[in-house]
Nucleic acid binder design. Structure first.
Lengths: 246, 246
DNA sequence: CAATTTTCATTTGTCAGACAATTAAACGTC
DNA sequence: GACGTTTAATTGTCTGACAAATGAAAATTG
């Protein structure tokens, strides 16, 4: 773990990279305690604030955790799926909003990935996952539900569908794709008829998953993808019409 | 943007969260300049080092960039796909290595997602993507190639396949799944016969994509998934045998 | 007046030293 | 031995300072 002392700028970034590489390579195993800030400062020949900035960079990526006190210090953190979910969702959401990714592109990606999970979900679904899907579908049918709540329930339904595949890596990857869509979905106003149609498809998907009928589930997911795209196109068309009317 | 002054610990984390939320909500648009560190310190009623630690946290997530000089400062960064790729790959790799995710689980997720891209790739592939796939398949057939180089070429082939779908969101999501597998793949020693089989499947996939035959591409990807799993199981079986022999 | 150079103010990057808060271990005390 | 107390180590924060970069304004020059 060494840094380039000839470039006196971005020292904290260099130090962070050195430690990060050590963690990724496995040189620093999980729960290993890093040297204290004072020791690191001495090793890298920098001041303690600079070391601290480097450690905060790593903390922001959940690579380390810190603890105060006599036996405290910075420890290599076991990156948990939950932590990774959060980062993945933040990154995905920003990526979509900052790069003018079209609804069509994001939607296509999401449903393509989700359909990849369906066969595994049909095969391995538990009563628990099915119950969640049914509960969310039922929640969606309740009158007086705001569009935002409807979307949130939609996300919950699809996450249950993905989780049913019983593959944490898939759940992790899909978390970003599904959750990042929510801000885009929230732009849509769902009429009673729209909701009815979506709930019907959700129910059909749950039925297919319960019956372990992977082809049927895929078919209904494809229909849902098409229908969602149509709804979005309507919104965009109406917006353009309103813009031209001005 | 406010913080809780009653909890005097983790001030930098609180400040980072406040600014991050402002960015995510859109209150701070891309390329907007944040107040100077001194001004932020005054606003939040903390010292400049504390503000700096918060800013470094955000910089670690590529949410801001900083520039020195008279008109310098911290600016809201447009999160580019490339930056997001890197973060995604780092996170995915660590997630697999730190949570004892089995080869089978990671492999299953990867090929499920990749097969989701195949239909789109078959539909939209350009000459450029096909050329890359062909070139990598050819590179894989060269004698004297190390296992590591073989794996790297394998990753390049599959990324070209994914990129051919022409959906940047898919490419982003898949980057993590494909690249994070590399350390696991590197554990496998590929015999000449193994390589021959894999190259044959790669060629068949490229053929199918070129012919826009989505079903054929899917079939060959499924075969490749099965074959990769078999190879890994051999490695694991041999390792267990060696362990028992001790 | 135009072009160029110089100066300067602003801002980030880094350093040094200090004190507060926390925590667990070492140490007495009963 | 059980239970407070002290103590040392460590992170969290603050103050003040200087260096380095950088663009803008001012001064200089042709």
């Amino acid at each position: 773990m060494k840094i380039d002392p000839t470039n006196p700028a971005d020292l904290s970034a260099q130090i962070a990279k050195a430690i990060r590489d050590a963690i990724i390579s496995g040189a620093l195993p999980v729960d290993e305690r890093l040297p204290s800030e004072a020791e690191l400062a001495e090793q890298f020949n920098v001041s303690r604030p600079t070391v601290r900035e480097a450690l905060k960079r790593l903390a922001a990526q959940s690579l380390i955790r810190t603890q105060r006190g006599a036996t405290g210090g910075a420890f290599v953190n076991r990156l948990r799926f939950e932590d990774a979910y959060g980062q993945q969702i933040t990154t995905s959401t920003l990526l979509l909003s900052m790069n003018d990714v079209s609804f069509a592109t994001a939607c296509e990606a999401r449903y393509a990935l989700e359909r990849a999970c369906a066969p595994l979900s049909a095969q391995r679904r538990t009563a628990d996952h099915l119950a969640t899907m049914r509960a969310e579908a039922h929640r969606q049918s309740q009158p007086g539900l705001t569009d935002e709540a409807f979307c949130a329930s939609d996300v919950a339904f699809h996450r249950a569908l993905v989780d049913a595949a019983g593959n944490p890596v898939l759940s992790y990857q899909l978390a970003g794709a599904v959750e990042a869509m929510q801000p885009l979905m929230n732009m849509i106003t769902f009429s009673a008829r729209d909701r009815e149609r979506i709930i019907m498809l959700h129910t059909a998907i749950a039925d297919a998953i319960e019956a372990q009928d992977s082809a049927k589930a895929d078919e209904n997911l494809a229909d849902l993808a098409t229908y969602t795209q149509e709804l979005a196109q309507d919104v965009i068309a109406k917006r353009n019409a309103a813009r031209q009317a001005k």
